[in-house]
Simulated assay, not measured.
Amino acid sequence: MKILVFVETAEGKVKKTSVEAVAYARSMGGDVVALALGEADKSELESLGKYGASKVLHDPDNRLSHGIIQAYASALSKAIQEEQADILVMAGSTLGTPVAARVAARIGAGIATNIVSIPEVAAGEMKLKKSIYTGKAFAWITLSSAKKVIVIKKNAATIQEVGASVPVTAFQSGVTDGDFGTRITSTEKATGEILLPEANIVVSGGRGMKGPENWGMLEELAKTLHAATGCSKPVSDMGWRPHHEHVGQTGVKVAPQLYIAVGISGAIQHLAGVNSSKYIVVINKDPEAPFFKAADYGIVGDAFEIIPKLTEAIKAAK
């Protein structure tokens, strides 16, 4: 069984979710080939061998650095054919998921998205567990097609070093001008040292912070934890925080190892954006706040007293 993994990059750096995809593919067994397109740091690509890739392909064509879905689908379809891959694995994202759908349609593959566990394989069929209803439930689906496309959810695999770096092999994707019928005219990037979709830890605040002037304590906590900052929808709507920090069903959906919610009541729309987090800590002075029902750990108390003490305790522990 040969597995191709699509590796997403940002400013030349391999995304953590793509490293998870390589680790996921390695856990399935078989021969794992990773493919990166466009600008990418050579040493980072080589390091994918440590996580299970036996071969790393790279097409440095700069036209492939801009997330054009049609072009990515063409390149991946060609790689699947040339490498004689049975399965394509990739991380779910605003780019990865639509690319996966196009590739599946091109090669006649069965596709499964939002996958959260290693598949069970028997008699050529593959049974997979997927997250549904914004993480409130799970469904089991079976892929019986010869070719399969699997899109995994963040944290579906544990990243572990299992080997050594491998050399990068040049790959000619053969994309043509016809693959670039869509053109990106401008891009607005979120600012900050750590961006929400890639963060392992997120510190988020709600209306309980009482105003934008009080956000300094959350930023200090986030800096101490090397975390990203987020907020609830009402906070971004009121202009207290930028809209790219809005976490929730209509904002950014996150799946960090740790999500800290401060002064957020826990409306269902917010929960839909964070319920894939491994651990949720809620700090709220209202013991009846709905968020406590979804929390792994809860602190009932005044955030203006708790956050500074928590920050100092973490600094002391370091």
Results as ranks from 00 to 15, higher is better:
153 K>A: 13
178 G>K: 12
184 I>M: 12
161 E>V: 11
171 F>H: 04
174 G>L: 06
150 I>T: 03
183 R>V: 15
184 I>V: 15
185 T>N: 10
160 Q>M: 13
161 E>Y: 07
157 A>H: 01
178 G>P: 02
149 V>M: 07
159 I>V: 15
179 D>S: 07
185 T>V: 13
166 V>K: 09
160 Q>S: 14
177 D>F: 03
171 F>N: 01
157 A>D: 01
178 G>C: 06
160 Q>N: 14
160 Q>H: 11
179 D>W: 03
160 Q>W: 00
156 A>T: 08
152 I>N: 01
164 A>S: 14
169 T>V: 14
174 G>D: 09
157 A>F: 02
178 G>H: 00
181 G>R: 10
175 V>Y: 01
163 G>W: 05
185 T>P: 00
181 G>N: 12
176 T>N: 05
163 G>M: 05
173 S>A: 14
165 S>R: 14
162 V>T: 13
169 T>P: 00
168 V>L: 07
185 T>A: 09
174 G>P: 09
169 T>E: 14
150 I>Q: 04
166 V>Q: 02
154 K>R: 15
168 V>Q: 05
183 R>L: 11
161 E>S: 11
170 A>M: 08
184 I>W: 06
183 R>G: 00
180 F>G: 07
150 I>R: 03
168 V>N: 02
169 T>G: 00
176 T>S: 15
165 S>L: 01
